[in-house]
Amino acid sequence: MAGRRVLYSSPYVPAEFIAAHGLQPYRVFPARHARAFGSGANEGLCPYAKAFVEEAASDADAAVIFATTCDQMRRASEPAQAPGRPPFVFNVPATWQSATAQATYRAELERLGRFLVRLGGAAPVPGQLAATMLQYDGARASLRAARSDARALEAAEALVALYQGTEPRASASGGAAASGPRLALLGGPLFRDQFSLYDDLEAAGARIVLDATETGERTLPAAFDPAAVRADPLGELARAYFGHIPDVFRRPNDGLYAWLARELAARRVQGVLLLRCVWCDLWHAEAPRLKERLGLPVVELDPSSAVPAAPRTQARVQAMLEIFT
């Protein structure tokens, strides 16, 4: 795919919209970074936001999109500014129930379109956005269909490949574990260098049947309605992304619980690993409620400080698995 690279992290940014403008959407799945940016120690700063800024800074030619889905990302857009490279701050409303919120998301898409044109992209000619949307929709459908047969790592790699326009990394081992406790991963994003957690969990005897992290299938948009795509592509984008993706930041966030209730039951999940970065208030505050509402064992892990193979992480995971043996 030609065109300038456009980096983003939020699942509420539609890749196909960027691609339809002739630019290269590239969703960043950052690895952990130890270096502070700016002159301060960044005390209290979300390590994922920090890692995203670091990765974005390493690609000086790319444009960057931040979403307002959390305060830390919104604020991280400022130190990420570089001369001649102002980031685009995509205002994703926290509320969703009002016509104003829905109109705001759509208006932000239109504003993003103008930004992309200023970057050197071209406004899609009639039919081009719809065609691109259907292409991405097809890829996501394939990904969903393959999910039940794939190991968790393969599914995660496939999603990364979809959003980075690359080939999935080759997998070293075979299909999904046939037995073992059926676990769901839930929470914020997983750092790229921690994808080995998937294999570690499966090696320990678990079967990951639902990846509801921010970097997992929870944040896939709804399947498009082809007729709606042709009639009003922007409206359909807004419906599938803003109207569908359940997340903890939404107010109220009942949609997340409804989605979890449905998916946990459908996949016969037995336990949940909740991944939340240190300083992530949104997931941290929600943890006790999740434990109460889900009716399943829930164990918290901090992906920002816990190396998957770290003794503390291993012990917590092992303790959880023992519940089922």
């Binding site: 307002t68 305060d71 926290a94 509320t95 992530c280 208030d281 949104l282 941290h284 505050a285």
Partner: peptide
């Protein structure tokens, strides 16, 4: 909510 601190919103 929206452009507010996460602590408070949560």
């Amino acid at each position: 909510v929206g452009a507010t601190c996460d602590d408070f919103s949560a």
